[in-house]
């Protein structure tokens, strides 16, 4: 059952990715991408990484995708109306993907594959995850925090409006 679920989820993710990459409208693409990332989160869960699945949803499907939408809105506000696709069944792919993902999520919750004696033998509980991270990779975490700081500073710098030096490059 869990094996079958894996292949079903894989098919859904692949389909979402292909739909995402072929869109002309970036907003649509981002929406399909959210589906794909959510499906990947379910796959992580199925592979015994519940903590990572949670991060995937929060960080990727949540924060980063919102960032994408913000930027798209910032550079081309008209996109939301102008390039909306036409047709009666334009909602069908999204609806199908969303429904399938929700169904898979429901099945997973019902099965509870991570329970003791469940079908997934190896799993990393959040406690074990945190301990492993900070025991073994403390330094990497610190370095990453610095990288994020630099990224924030860089993004701030790039986003600033240069007075009188517009179009400098």
């Amino acid at each position: 059952m869990a094996t079958l679920l894996f292949y079903i989820l894989a098919a859904i993710v692949l389909m979402a990715v292909l739909l995402c990459l072929t869109r002309n409208n970036p907003v649509h693409a981002v929406l399909y991408l959210v589906h794909a990332l959510f499906g990947l989160a379910l796959l992580y869960f199925l592979l015994g990484a519940p903590m990572l699945a949670a991060w995937q949803v929060i960080l990727y499907a949540g924060a980063i995708m919102v960032l994408f939408l913000f930027v798209i809105m910032l550079i081309d506000p008209d996109l939301f109306e102008k390039k909306a696709s036409r047709g009666r069944f334009r909602w069908l792919p999204v609806g199908f993907l969303s429904g399938a993902l929700l169904a898979c999520g429901g099945v997973l919750i019902m099965m509870d594959p991570l329970a003791a004696g469940g079908i997934v033998r190896y799993r990393l509980s959040p406690r074990a995850f945190g301990r492993a991270l900070f025991d073994e990779y403390g330094l990497a975490v610190e370095i990453l925090s610095l990288i994020l700081l630099f990224a924030a500073v860089g993004a701030f710098h790039l986003g600033r409006r240069h007075k009188g030096k517009e179009d400098a490059s």
Binding site: L59, Y60, A63, I64, L67, F68, L144, I147, L148, F150, A151, A152, G154, A155, L158
Partner: peptide
Amino acid sequence: VAAAEISI
């Protein structure tokens, strides 16, 4: 890292 990269 992906988060940092994508923000930049």
